[in-house]
Design a protein around this nucleic acid. Structure first.
Ligand code: FES
Ligand code: FES
Lengths: 162, 162
DNA sequence: GGTTTGCGGATATTATATATCCTTAATTCC
DNA sequence: GGAATTAAGGATATATAATATCCGCAAACC
């Protein structure tokens, strides 16, 4: 079980978008260059964010992406699910049905106990991500990253923002 | 991100092994037939359990698998990690290093804030699985499964246990 | 009108999961 | 002792998913 690298990309891109001034857009090209990522493939991740209505887009030379909502109203989980999908990590293939001791046509009243535990763990994972807001991430980053690098980065970004 | 189906197989097999009388073994063949699984491939999952020291094995016509410890001392997490691996679901590829505004040779003091949140969620997932014992699963199953099917199944198993 | 941009489809490449086959050594039963 | 059965591990094949690139389209800007 391994998450796509697009999850890392999307989260970092959203953190950058969260620092954009009101109404400005940042292009795939700039985001790819800033993070050293393949532009075409990063574009797929950003399209996922767009389809999930987490970002707004606009076309043309000064176009690109911006957050659709304030960063305090976007959760980690929304970003992760946008690129990774909402499907649970554990899928039950109902192997209990193959038990030769089961009467033919017997129908289970509940999902299997094994699956229920695995899904509970999945929920715990999602709940952790649900509780973290994008604005929390930006706050932590601004503490971790040295002030001069932080400032230079947003200067770099603003120079390219449409 | 999707767990291997071997996780479902291993958990169900362990639940069966937990019901074996002291000192008896159950073969791959029987476990595969009981769950309707490909014998050769299920064998790989059972080998993983063996390598993790969760089960004991013995060779020969009456050989097979049994739990290495009481089911109350085996957690869901141990079984899941045996087949799925202990690696975290999120891997940081350090894309922050590609930021062109970073001075050459700059070294981060902490893991990235994005990764820390993802790893925290991963820990929440693992903690949920750590708290559930194999004996808990057997207890739940014995409540869910109708008594006659439950009894027939273990009769079926005992007929094949070495 | 030429350029830039996001978008979606098609395609190629790589890695992983799934599955089978075969050999070896240990154990049981006759 | 010999035949049958079993787990273990290596080699290999197939299917599916992740990664990556390319192209054409329509909207927006100059
Ligand atoms: S039958 Fe799928 S988890 Fe039990
Ligand atoms: S650089 Fe990997 S998660 Fe931030």
């Amino acid at each position: 079980m391994i998450l796509k690298s697009q999850v890392e990309w999307a989260l970092h891109c959203c953190a950058i978008l969260a620092g954009l001034p009101e109404g400005r857009y940042l292009s795939t090209k700039a985001l790819a260059e800033l993070h050293g990522l393949p532009k075409e493939y990063l574009s797929k991740a950003l399209q996922s964010l767009s389809q999930a209505s987490l970002v707004d887009t606009t076309l043309g030379p000064s176009g690109g992406y911006r957050l659709a909502r304030p960063s305090s109203e976007i959760s980690f989980l929304e970003i992760v699910e946008a690129v990774e999908g909402k499907a649970r990590s554990f899928t039950c293939t109902n192997i209990r049905e193959n038990n030769p001791c089961r009467p033919a046509g017997y129908c289970d009243s509940k999902p299997c106990a094994v699956a229920r535990v695995m899904w509970e763990a999945d929920e715990a994972w999602r709940n952790t991500l649900r509780r973290v807001r994008l604005s929390d991430l930006v706050g932590t980053l601004s503490e971790d990253v040295p002030p001069d690098i932080w400032r230079d980065t947003f200067e770099w970004v603003l120079k390219r923002a449409g």
